[in-house]
Design a binder for these strands. Structure first.
Lengths: 351, 351
DNA sequence: GTGAAAGCGCTAACAT
DNA sequence: ATGTTAGCGCTTTCAC
């Protein structure tokens, strides 16, 4: 069924090399020849065969994104940025999303298959030595999103600073006993956020209280899930005395945490202050205070870095760290505004 | 760089055909030969080259999903279903998401490039004759999600029935002047929902009032956007007398609509009843009543249909219609429950 | 500026 | 059960 370069060549009275040159915008082809070839190709409805191109060029025309799970919309927002940048190129986007963390390796293997993609972006995945070794062996361009390793390009957020700002913000609002809702302890970003939180407390002459730190035990995605947040918050609220405010290391967990809080009948922010991390779009509707990550921009930049490295593999490695931005909404009883619309009364209306 | 089948063949003392057979699980290979080949392959770290396979098999090892835009999480939920089903196969997922509707055609062209994918799924895209013609010409397996055409497999929701249930629900709660927030009039699902809405009104001896029907004018994604909902609701609330309740044809628009309502100081549901369509995850947190689409299941089924058609192109076309389910939450002042957790007090706490 | 020819790495007849 | 061989559709030297 499919037309080949041979059909076009014959019809246009040229060789296949010329047809190929035309479609690759080679300057070494006479204007009128180019015109004729394109005319014939259009008339016959010819399209180059992507797999054949990939094979001959020794480079796939796709780029892979490996995402822990699509239920956390953080990843979706980053993907949007990726996609928008890639749409400007000839690379198409392969998306690998695993329902559980264990599958990340399986997806990684698929994405790294030879001839599959020209490069991969790996989201929020701890860089174990084993994984690093696997990536190196693949000799493929790699960009890390929301994680770090000196051998690979990366884009991430200043987690320590974010945790610091979160805790300090709660302190500034008069809360004293500040709890922490952690993801799994082996999540590097979560650990960094925790360090920032501890720094803020110490700066206020408060010693972090291990009893007020509870980690999500959901096995999925290092605990960054709604269910994980729900369950961890339930445990945290059993503490006696209970915390006056809580920093939750991610908005998706904060969603579950809010449910848990509601079930106990506590009021936010009067009885309990709350601040999250990420600034998902839903957070605005909930009036959730949080630390914003510029997810879309991070996606765009990640795509940019990958494209650059595909073009020039020997470029020096760069790692870009974005600064988190405090978004003050209702859940921490602030009188400040974040410059955006405030949804305070929205939720009141609904009640 | 890059081991080939020849390297393995030589090392294992067999021909390349045998190596190929081993990797394609052909039964026509002796157990001990298979074992030896696999052993060599593992030792040397051999992986088949996907592009070469695609070329030789005349079938790409990917499947494409063309999505209007990732800002509507409806698509994300369907994508999850797709991805989960595809992960069980050897097909990987290409995602095309356009920021504006006009780009759907551009993305379609890319997805349909020869050798790019083994089949495509097209989300929420009106099947114009031109588009149908293009798809037919491509001779590729196609599955339609959230739209319909007799020539292609499809999975969708009973929009008319959903619109009917929505309006009837509002009527049953005593609302009389019921408005409608439409997407673009050329969105088929929106039109179907409108028909259901009108049927419910007529059944209650109410004549649909054109003055109470306002359409989103956002050019993106047929008006299915937060901004579109916001702006349309503002206009609707200027009507005099204004509606007592409103059926919004999609949750993403309802998000914007809620913002508009809030700005006017109206209370939901006392001053204004509201019901949406989709049941996004955020809707539960907002207490938004809505008609649920089983998005994840729709994605799984769409993947299933596509895989089947890839395997057997001559299968008869099937179209599956899911029934929407009424989810009664706060925004329509119901005393019923939907069996799930109620978030009534959650939003109250936040206020 | 254009063409001939040698791959790219694999699959699938066909032969044995 | 295994090997030989002819493609799959394109890119890319290398000549001219």
């Amino acid at each position: 069924m499919g037309l080949t370069i041979y059909d076009i060549a014959r019809e246009a009275g040229v060789s296949i090399a010329t047809v190929s040159r035309v479609f690759n915008n080679s300057p070494r082809v006479a204007p009128h020849t180019r015109k004729r070839v394109l005319e014939v190709a259009r008339r016959l409805g010819y399209q180059p065969h992507v797999s054949a191109q990939s094979l001959a060029r020794r480079q796939a025309q796709t780029v892979a994104a490996i995402v822990p799970m699509l239920t956390n919309y953080f990843f979706v927002e980053v993907l949007r940025g990726l996609q928008d940048r890639l749409a400007e190129t000839s690379f198409d986007l392969l998306v690998y999303a695993a329902p559980t963390l264990s599958d990340v390796n399986a997806h990684l293997e698929r994405a790294l298959q030879r001839g599959r993609s020209a490069g991969v972006m790996i989201f929020s995945t701890p860089m174990t030595e084993e994984r690093v070794e696997r990536l190196r062996r693949s000799r493929q361009p790699v960009v890390l999103v929301d994680s770090f390793h000196p051998d690979f390009d990366s884009v991430s957020i200043d987690n320590e600073q974010g945790g610091y700002l979160a805790a300090r913000h709660l302190l500034e609002h008069g809360y004293q006993r500040i709890g922490l809702l952690m993801a799994h302890p082996d999540s590097v970003p979560a650990r960094e956020r925790r360090h920032g939180y501890e720094r803020a407390l110490r700066e206020a002459d408060l010693e972090p209280d291990p009893a007020l730190i509870v980690a999500s035990t959901d096995p999925h995605n290092h605990g960054y899930t709604e269910e994980g947040g729900y369950e961890a918050m339930r445990r945290l609220l059993e503490r006696n005395p209970r915390p006056e405010a809580v920093f939750v290391v991610s908005d998706i967990m904060a969603l579950g945490a809010l449910r848990a809080i509601e079930e106990t009948g506590l009021r936010v922010p009067e009885d309990l202050g709350l601040i999250g991390f990420d600034d998902l779009r839903v957070s605005r509707f909930l009036g959730l205070s949080t630390l914003r990550q510029p997810m879309y921009e991070m996606g765009k930049l990640a795509a940019e870095k990958l494209l650059r490295r595909i073009a020039e593999p020997e470029l020096p490695v760069t790692s870009t760290v974005f600064a988190p931005r405090l978004i003050c909404r209702r859940t921490c009883a602030s009188d400040e505004q974040d410059g955006q619309r405030d949804v305070t009364t929205l939720t009141r209306n609904l009640a």
